[in-house]
């Protein structure tokens, strides 16, 4: 987990000591990175030049360095950590098994294995209530 904003490492330190450590026992346990001028955020498509900040972008990067998932929110709405964890579990499952995970998949639920035989028959294996 790497967290990044345009704030300096000094600001990160004071935020950790004055506020984050009050929310999380021992403080936020991951590196907090500094992106001066949003130069890294610009390459990732999350830097907003008007406000001069990196908006709420989240990238899941696999062990080969490939981006597998992106979520970008404007600043006013916070993330859903449960859905983030589900996505990581799904991408890890896909990487390990070669199976694919249909909409709404959770660990332990059925996956699909693409094949000519499954073509046009997904409706027999996956129902819409499984999306929820």
């Amino acid at each position: 987990m790497l967290a990044m904003s345009v704030d300096s490492r000094f600001s990160h330190k004071i935020w950790q000591e004055t506020e984050l450590s009050q929310m999380v026992p021992g403080g936020f346990p991951y590196p907090m990175l500094n992106d001066p001028g949003g130069r890294i955020g610009a390459v990732y498509g999350v830097y907003d030049e008007e406000s001069g900040v990196d908006v709420r972008g989240r990238f899941i990067i696999d062990p080969d360095g490939i981006i597998q998932a992106v979520e970008i929110l404007t600043p006013s709405v916070g993330r859903n950590v449960t859905e983030f964890i589900r996505q990581v579990q799904a991408f890890q499952h896909v990487r390990a098994t070669g199976e694919v995970t249909p909409s709404g998949w959770q660990p332990g639920r059925p996956t699909l294995t693409p094949s000519p035989a499954l073509t046009g028959k997904v409706w027999t294996a996956w129902k819409t209530d499984m999306a929820l």
């Binding site: 990044m4 904003s5 990175l33 992106d35 972008g57 696999d62």
Partner: peptide, 30 residues
């Protein structure tokens, strides 16, 4: 990028994490 981590300051390069899953989270500000 320069980072604050475990009470100190260090430079962190994304490619040093090759072989691991990484989540990179941008946020608007401290």
């Amino acid at each position: 990028a320069t980072a604050y981590y475990q009470g100190g300051y260090e430079n962190i390069r994304l490619s040093d994490y090759r072989g691991q899953w990484v989540v990179l989270c941008f946020y608007p500000g401290d």
